[in-house]
Structure formats: structure tokens, C-alpha cells
Design a protein around this nucleic acid. Structure first.
Lengths: 225, 225
DNA sequence: TAGATTGTTAATCGATTAACAATC
DNA sequence: TAGATTGTTAATCGATTAACAATC
């Protein structure tokens, strides 16, 4: 069992469908924990989260045996384990590329810092912004990105620039050794497979909402995305 | 053929998987259009978008016959039709609830207006903000939301408030007759089925990225969401 | 007409749900 | 031990891909 569990822990081939659900489990378990709940069964969680108990058990079992038969799951333990899977036990160092409204908003959003996502630098091509401060960060010129990534051990770049420059800037980031890009530009990046990309296409999201207003209901309104 | 096409046009039961892909088709077709491309085959689009030609034809056929056998699809026509499906031929009236950093950023983002999503009001519970302007919009107190929705024919509420107040505010919105909520609060709303909800859970998105940094590659880095 | 490419049916693949044996 | 609930296998469902007949 040890071997098996160990191998499952860093198993490959877990579908993005499952991974997408982990933060939601994490969120609900955090609530239960804050309420002082000690244990939860897949059925109880199923009722709260409106997904099947079967799916919960399947999802969790992708990563090893987190529960105890006849008892259920220990909330605190499961919460911590899922947090670990999500990399929340480690600190991440981020830069924001694009100091426009969205870049500023993200820089000021405290909840990311709370989870270990630390903003270390912010860049913009507009010289008028250079030297100004957003939160505690001085806006730097784009030319300094590569050096900054290398010197400050930056994992993640948050891309909040217009789509016109997104592709070339993404290339710069990749060449500087970035591990992941959180992409808010309205374009699909074209970078090597091993660099992780998570797209937040706000326009797409709004258009989807617009579609659903006009058409008849298709599914529930919970979960998804 | 007329009857069939007509019925397909407002067909129910089109999966959210398909609907989620429509904005991306729209985006690529817009680019082709801007480049002056007149026609495109599913195979050509497949090469550009990195999805199978089969999927493209299947997806489009959910909504009726947009193409011509032996020829392909007329770019401009298909672009317009998908835009129509996405409700972009109509104007939408939105309010922003929560005038914090994110609310301000969204208010200032021009691309939504360009697509017919018009911001008509912005609300916040902080009295110090009341009467100040964000873009061309005066910040109003929360108490005025319901009246404003009814008077100004508001379709969509953009929810950019902390999760603590999100549930109760969402209820207010529903009672005032809102059709859809674009939810940026870090919580799942619990409102009637017929009200459309599109969640943008930024924290979830960042956690997913974090997961993928630590684990091995699972899939390509293109597309998804 | 011959060639190209759609629309659509059939086959495959993957994800979700159900069922139940293992076990706490 | 009996009861509860997981972990896991098997069944189902849905989405994607392949194949090809229809037709421009």
C-alpha cells in the first residue's frame, strides 16, 4: 500500500476535469474546518456541494486514500492534503506584467498573498508609470523583466497586457525561465508545453453568460466553469 | 430544411462544453475576417485553432448548417452568426456591484462596451465612495440597486464584492429581477435555476495553475479553461 | 463531371455514476 | 460484532473523433 500511495501522490495523467474541482473541494473543506467540523462523509459533502458522493470519492482516490472506511474523512487532514496538492504549502513568487486597471486590481487583492502567492514585481511599458508604486511595488520598465525573473526566483507571471503585445512578451517570459503564466490577455499563447498556462478570458466568460441569457436553460447553475 | 434549421437555432440541450467553445471560434473568425480571409474550411480552422476539424463541424452543426459542401464556411457570415448566437447583436445593460479594485478595473475595460455590454451603474456599500466617479459612472449606495435595476432595464449584474456579503446581495439582485450574474466573489451562489450565473473564481484558477506547476504535464497547454 | 468539403451517422474514448466488497 | 463508509470495479452516459454519404 505504501508504494501505491506514494506513486499515486505524484501520479501523472490526472485529468484536468479532476484538477479543476480541487480548489472547490478546498474551499468547502475550509468552511467546514472554520465551523469546527471534524469529520465529513462523501455523502455529507455531496449534499453541501451538490456533486455526487461517488464523484467525490473517485476524485480523492486519484491521489491516494485520504479517508477511513466506516468513518469518512477528517476535515482538517483532507483540507491540508488538498492544499498540499494545490501547492499551497509552498510560497510562489509572481510578477505582474501590465500595470493597467486589471494588473493593479490583482496586485491589491489580498487573498492571493494569504495563500502564499507573493507579488514581487510589476512591469509596464508606459514610462510615465515607472517609479510609481502600486501597493508596495514600484512599477518597472519591461526591459528589466528577464533579469528580474532570474534574480528573484519568479515562478509565475501574471499577464495583464493587451493582446497585441501578449505573444511577444510571453516569449520573453519563457526565455527568462518562467514556469507558469496566468494569462488575462484575450489571446491564446503559443509557448512550449512544459510552461503551464492558465487562461482567464474574461470576454469569453461574459459572452458565455450572454449566450445563456438568450437560450433556454441547459443545466443547473451551480458549479461548472 | 427551413423548419429544421429554425428549430435548431433555438435548440435546447446544447452542452456547456460546446457553448464554452463558441467565444473562441468567434475570436479566431474575427481575426480571419480582419485579415480579409473570405472562406475557411474546417480543416484550415482546425490547423489554426488546434482542435479537430471534426469537432468544429460537430459544434457548428448544433446550430444549423452554416457551411457549404465542397466550399467550406464563409468567414464573415459564420462570424456574424456565432456573434448572434452569443447575443452580441443585442445591447446588454450591466451594473457593477462592488466598486473595489476589480469592479473599477472591469468598469474601465473598454472591450466589453465594444461588444455591446454597457455599464449603466456602479454600487458600493462604502459611503465615502458615493458620489465619486468611476469612468463616467457615479458610485451609488447599495440601497438603490433594486430600483435601479427595474428602472434601467438591467440584464446583468457584475458581482465584485467579498464573499461574505455575496449571498445576500445576490438574493437582492434576484428579487429585483436580474437575468444573469457574472460572479467574481469567491463563493458559489445559490439562486434559482432560471437566473444565469457565470463564475470567475480567480483564486480557483490560480490554484489550478499552481497544481500544474508541481505535477507533471497532463495535456497540452493550449485551449482548456 | 470531378474534386472538395460539409453534415451526419457510427465508433471510440473518457468521465461520471452506480454498485459492492473491503475494512475501519 | 454490526454498522457505516470508503476504495474500487463495473456500468452508464456523454463528448470527441473517425468515417463516409450527401451535395455544392
Amino acid at each position: 500500500m505504501e508504494t501505491k500511495e506514494g506513486s499515486k501522490d505524484n501520479a501523472k495523467g490526472i485529468s484536468q476535469a479532476v484538477i479543476s474541482r480541487l480548489p472547490r473541494y478546498f474551499r468547502y473543506l475550509g468552511e467546514l474546518k472554520d465551523q469546527g467540523t471534524e469529520r465529513v462523509s462523501s455523502q455529507e459533502l455531496s449534499d453541501i456541494m451538490k456533486v455526487t458522493a461517488s464523484q467525490i470519492r473517485q476524485d480523492l482516490n486519484n491521489f491516494g486514500g485520504f479517508g477511513q472506511q466506516g468513518y469518512g474523512y477528517k476535515v482538517e487532514y483532507l483540507y491540508k492534503e488538498i492544499g498540499r496538492l494545490l501547492g499551497l504549502d509552498k510560497k510562489h513568487h509572481l510578477i505582474i506584467v501590465g500595470a493597467g486597471n486589471l494588473g493593479q486590481a490583482l496586485a491589491n487583492y489580498m487573498n492571493f498573498e494569504r495563500r502564499g502567492f507573493l507579488f514581487r514585481g510589476i512591469f509596464d511599458k508606459d514610462p510615465r508609470l515607472h517609479g510609481t508604486f502600486i501597493k508596495n511595488l514600484e512599477v518597472m520598465p519591461m526591459e528589466q523583466i528577464s533579469g528580474f525573473i532570474r534574480t528573484n526566483d519568479i515562478d509565475i507571471a501574471v499577464l495583464t497586457i493587451p493582446k497585441e503585445s501578449a505573444l511577444t512578451v510571453a516569449d520573453t517570459l519563457v526565455r527568462a525561465g518562467i514556469k507558469a503564466i496566468w494569462n488575462f490577455a484575450d489571446v491564446d499563447l503559443n509557448i512550449p508545453e512544459e510552461i503551464q498556462v492558465e487562461n482567464v478570458h474574461l470576454s469569453d466568460s461574459l459572452m458565455k453568460l450572454s449566450y445563456n441569457i438568450n437560450r433556454y436553460k441547459n443545466r443547473g447553475n451551480h458549479v461548472e466553469n
